[in-house]
Amino acid sequence: MSDWLPPGLFVYGSELAAAIGGRLGRRLVGDGQAWIDMPRRLGTADVPSVPVPWGNGALCVDLGPDDVETWEGFAEVHRDEPDPEAVAVAAQEWRLPVTPYRRLPAASSGRLGAPAVNEPIGTTSIDGAKVVDLTSMWAGPLCTELLGRAGAEVHKVTSAARPDGLAGTPMHAELNAHKTVVDLDLRLAADRRSLDQLLASAELLVTSLSPRALANLDLLPEQLCARHSRLRTMAITAFEPDAPECDWIAYGTGVHASAGLGWLDDEPRAPAYSYPDPLAGLHAAARAVDQLAGTAPPHQRVSLAGAVAPLAARAACALTRDARTDGNSHG
């Protein structure tokens, strides 16, 4: 397994954790590096999907077990297309989690410095707030676990028929330690009604489903407002709502690739594990606390791509400095 991770990752994660610690208390949040390095700390890291050379670049093909046959058929149809960007767009139409490995420009308009989560004066109490957790894997469960540690009453909706991809691992146990598990299969009408009953008394719904999946389940904010006018929502997605990729399916490695952080050297590189997930989870937790406190808009969307933007901006600045230094040394 590759041990490579973007430079500055743990410093940035520590800044995020400190910002959230200002809301919930440092003791509850803990150390940012510990949350980011969970797969290696707990021995649950998988071999990441390696870059797939394609035409004049590379693709991140981050398939689930149900995607393999579809990908094989897709790849055969598009094997003569040389542009990874065009292939990724076409793959998304097949609902395949495929993204291009992009090169990070030497100059970037991305945000620099500290993450955009303002630290309030004093801590915020969310003790007893009822939160419904409709997330899986890492980003969403980290967000709701931090809320649970701070005293929120978190109801984790999962399905024995379609378990979380981390189920049975030490990581899953740590990310869901402060939650009440509710077994619901949302493919069933009766279980969807049970979820709606749960939402009737909830203050916040946290999801990590795609916008298309949320719409199919009547869980978009505009769909929920008529039934639960007081319910706040936090959606964790792969990309920002105003991005061309806003509806794309992607996981952390795919966001790593598309953000340019996978091509800082002469060739594309996969990360040791999906580090965009904990960054997004920390961002989401900070915003969720503000939502529960009534100091942030009731409906929020946090993306993995938005969470890594400051990290990409810092990497771009480093590339620019290196280029200038190299140019001066040869001047």
Rank of each mutant, 00 (worst) to 15 (best):
G294I: 12
G281L: 05
L231D: 06
R192N: 00
H256A: 00
E174M: 12
R269S: 03
A286S: 13
A293D: 09
L261F: 07
L199T: 03
R227W: 08
P271F: 02
E174Y: 00
P297L: 11
T253F: 04
C225H: 14
G252Q: 08
A226P: 03
R230I: 03
L175M: 11
S274I: 04
D277V: 01
L282V: 07
L279F: 08
P221K: 09
L175H: 08
S274V: 07
H299Y: 07
H283N: 15
A215S: 14
L186A: 11
H283T: 07
H256C: 00
G260K: 04
S274A: 13
A177K: 13
L204Q: 01
Y275E: 01
Q223V: 06
S208K: 06
R193L: 14
V255D: 08
G168C: 05
E245R: 15
A296V: 05
L292Y: 06
C225V: 14
V289S: 06
R187V: 01
D247W: 08
L166I: 11
A286M: 05
A257V: 10
A177Y: 00
W263H: 14
C246V: 11
L279K: 10
D183A: 04
P276A: 03
M234L: 14
A250L: 10
D185I: 04
G260E: 03
R269I: 07
N176P: 09
G168H: 02
A238P: 01
K179P: 00
T180F: 10
A286N: 07
T169S: 15
L205P: 01
P244D: 11
T237H: 13
R232F: 07
P297W: 06
A189I: 12
D183P: 02
S201R: 13
L261E: 11
E267R: 13
A296S: 08
D277R: 02
P268T: 08
D185R: 02
T237L: 13
A238S: 11
A177S: 12
A238V: 02
R232S: 04
V255P: 01
D185K: 03
C246F: 12
P278E: 05
A284V: 04
Y273K: 10
R212D: 15
V181P: 04
G252T: 09
D196G: 13
H299G: 00
T295L: 07
L282S: 01
A250S: 12
R212G: 10
